[in-house]
């Protein structure tokens, strides 16, 4: 269970999050929607521990662990996964090397045995097939020369390999065509189960047609102003954020 209470944060001295309260119980998928600049991406970076995103108050725990107090890699080992809105390119770092290093680092942190090259390849091939990814993507540099859709699929592949307990999907739908959107959504839906929860950050309702959330939250000016069921997303789509904000 992810529990966020009164979380405030600033970037370059400018307050962006102004008291976020949110609970995502294990096994549930929650969506966060909000207009541009409302703090959605900031929330995801604060949870993942990006430098420059300074927490000024409040708390965030995941399964009882104070995640704000630990390093980004420790958060990852604790089961937190962030699918980046803009996945980073790593020239010279092979996708396979990267994935295997990450997977084994997390296994090590959990006291599990590391996968050897063969075991890893077998697993990777399996997961890639499910995501309709060509095998040569393993050989290429991480995200280097990938199209927008390929980058997003690569994020989902990493998620499928690392099997996080909490996935934060930061505008994973941006720049995707319908086919890619479906593949990505299938990837997320396949993960759903009692030990998996997800926070789906999105601008539009479209993605939520494919990944149906248990709850929808509206983030405006760094605060959750409304929460509701999946129908809230439709209401937003029909009436816009301004109406919701006025009503809140």
């Amino acid at each position: 269970m992810l529990r966020i209470e009164g979380l405030t944060a600033e970037v370059e001295g400018k307050p962006i999050l102004n008291g976020v309260d949110l609970e995502v119980p294990s096994g549930e998928v929650h969506a966060i929607m909000g207009p541009n600049g409302s703090g959605k991406s900031t929330l995801s970076y604060v949870l993942a521990g990006r430098e420059g995103y300074v927490v000024t108050g409040g708390s965030a725990t995941f399964n009882g662990v104070d995640i704000l107090a630990i390093e980004p890699e420790e958060r990852a080992a604790a089961g937190l996964f962030l699918a980046f809105q803009y996945p980073v390119e790593l020239p010279g770092v092979g996708n396979a090397t990267f994935l295997r290093t990450a997977l084994n680092a997390q296994r090590r942190a959990k006291g599990e045995s590391e996968l050897d090259a063969m075991q890893f390849l077998k697993l990777a091939r399996e997961r890639m097939k499910a995501l309709s990814m060509p095998e040569d993507m393993l050989k290429r540099g991480v995200n280097v020369g990938f199209s927008g859709g390929e980058k997003k699929r690569n994020e989902i592949l990493q998620m499928a390999m690392l099997k996080p307990a909490l996935a934060i999907l930061d505008e994973t739908d941006s720049g995707l065509d319908i086919d890619a959107l479906k593949i990505v959504s299938d990837g997320v839906n396949a993960m759903r189960g009692p030990d998996f929860s997800a926070l789906v950050i999105t601008h539009y309702q479209r993605l939520l047609d494919y990944i149906v959330p248990d709850r929808v939250h509206v983030l405006i000016s760094g605060r959750i102003v409304r929460s509701g069921g999946p129908e809230l997303a439709q209401e937003l789509e029909a009436q816009g954020y301004a109406a919701v904000q006025a009503a809140a």
Partner: peptide, 9 residues
């Protein structure tokens, strides 16, 4: 940061 979010120390 990207590498660290994937659990790599």
């Amino acid at each position: 940061f990207y590498l660290r979010t994937r659990g790599i120390p």
